[in-house]
Write a protein that binds this DNA or RNA. Structure first.
Length: 419
RNA sequence: GUGGUCGUAGCUCAAUGGUAGAGCUCCAGGUUGUGGUCCUGGCUGUUGCGGGUUCGAGUCCCGUCGAUCACCCCA
């Protein structure tokens, strides 16, 4: 039996790699446009880094690729970026002016049963603003998430940001007399309102003194006062149409302290495209108090995004256009006697920064032109018996001109061949 | 971890329990130094793997591995 890739892990053949690179470069260019700086950390971390964060909920540890290395050290493949980010920030935050706007594009690993939109190894874009607690930072993060998706060709018809606020929830729950533990239980139930039977949820809610009806009433009030500053900032950017206040979003994690949000496709057929929120106490907790900075961030994975691109013609076409094969020059060797000179031309083209290809073995001229077409070449340079003259042909118009070597080089240099 | 569905050529898929096929891709040709189309020819299968029923299994049964969808969960 031949060995194939492990379940949930992917091979990236050239066409897959091109697609992935295009997604990554779109992420990078938008984040850079927003003034974010890229960082990265190690793929392998001490297992303790994840234990520390999750003393409350231990399921995460079950999904860790964790093992002992050769020295007996407990290590794990990173399942997310936030602990690494917190570690790095705590180690050197005094070096950086605030707010720190950092992003990364990294691969992550989770040992889960794979299904649509969820693999065991995936790529995720993460962006965080550290050291700024104002709603302006919340709006900046939300805008980035929106513009990231717009850069792929999506519009308000295709996706929506559902915006909620943990602080509003905690205030509400406190007003109902819930202590911290009861609040977490209530939030967990709120997260499942759409999926589980009310009876079952009411049973879970019993210790909190609340009912499903109480939660629904709170959610039903719509947009609380707390959203106003963020919504105003989004309105000033013209992005209101992408955001919908929705208190039913609570997110599973315990550490969120303020704004939380998830991005969904409008047709609601996929799982969340992106999600995140404010976590003002996490860096303090993870660093044992070495640093204490407010932060807000989110992640966007490549898997669900890829599904939505495939299902959205406008985005699929845009991606496809970016992936069309392209080559500046194909050097046609019409006379094998001049192969050495042709190689010289190839080298010159490449040194000028032009993507250039040529046949590695003798091939009939017709086949060479066919090959040039398949490779998406813009121009062909034909080297043959008339050497030292060569022909430069623009393949789209079939226009040819005869040039000597210096005229050719001049032409390649000056106009970059944009005929 | 639980349940449903599905595994046939590199890819997409056919084949009533009775001799395993097509399209695409790929490769080679279509006489002189010029094109995506077109024409001709060619390669590829222990039908995921292992058992069983049967005169005979791609087809039916069991197991196993994998894929997929849902549940669980989603940092």
């Amino acid at each position: 039996m031949p060995i194939s890739a492990l379940p949930g892990f992917r091979d990236f053949f050239p066409e897959d790699c091109a697609r992935r690179n295009q997604i990554v470069s779109t992420w990078r260019s938008v984040a850079t446009r927003y003034g974010f700086q890229e960082f990265d950390g190690p793929v392998l971390e001490s297992t303790d880094l994840y234990r520390k964060k999750n003393d409350a909920g231990a399921e995460i540890l079950d999904q860790l690729y964790a093992f002992a290395d050769r020295g007996g050290r407990e290590v794990a493949l990173r399942p997310e970026m936030t602990p690494t980010l917190a570690r790095m920030v705590a180690a050197r935050e005094k070096h950086y002016r605030k707010p720190m706007k950092w992003f990364c594009v990294s691969n992550f690993f989770r040992h889960e049963r794979q299904q649509k939109g969820r693999l065991r190894e995936f790529l995720q874009f993460n962006a965080d603003i550290i050291g700024e607690s104002s709603p302006a930072a919340d709006a900046e993060i939300l805008s980035l998430a929106i513009d990231l998706l717009r850069a792929f060709g999506f519009t308000a018809e295709h996706f929506v940001v559902r915006l909620s606020d943990r602080a509003a929830w905690m205030d509400f729950l406190a007003s109902k007399g819930c202590d911290h533990a009861a609040s977490l239980t209530a939030l967990a139930c709120a997260d499942k309102l759409e999926r589980e039977h009310p009876d079952k949820l009411n049973a879970r809610l019993a210790p909190t003194g609340l009912t499903v009806e109480d939660l629904r009433t709170f959610i039903g009030q719509g947009s609380p006062q707390a959203f106003a500053p963020v919504m105003d900032a989004l309105a000033a950017r013209g992005l209101t149409g992408f955001v919908q206040p929705d208190l039913s979003i609570v997110r599973g994690l315990a550490y969120y302290t303020g704004v939380v949000f998830e991005v969904f496709d409008r047709s609601q057929t996929l799982r969340a495209l992106a999600g995140g929120g404010r976590y003002d106490g996490l860096i303090h907790g993870l660093s044992d108090g070495a640093a204490d900075l407010p932060a807000i961030g989110f992640g966007m994975g490549d898997v669900v995004l890829g599904h939505l691109i495939d299902e959205t013609p406008a985005a699929a076409q845009r991606l496809q256009a970016a992936l069309a094969p392209s080559l500046d020059i194909f050097v046609v060797i019409a006379d094998e006697a001049h192969r050495p000179e042709a190689l010289g031309i190839v080298q010159t083209c490449r040194e000028l920064g032009l993507s250039t290809d040529f046949p590695l073995k003798p091939v009939k001229t017709g086949k060479q032109f066919q090959e040039a077409e398949h490779l998406g070449a813009q121009h062909a340079i034909l080297v043959g018996q008339e050497w030292p003259l060569v022909k430069l042909k623009h393949l789209a118009t079939r226009a040819e001109e005869v040039l000597d070597r210096s005229a050719l080089v001049q032409k390649l240099k000056s106009c970059k061949l944009d005929s």
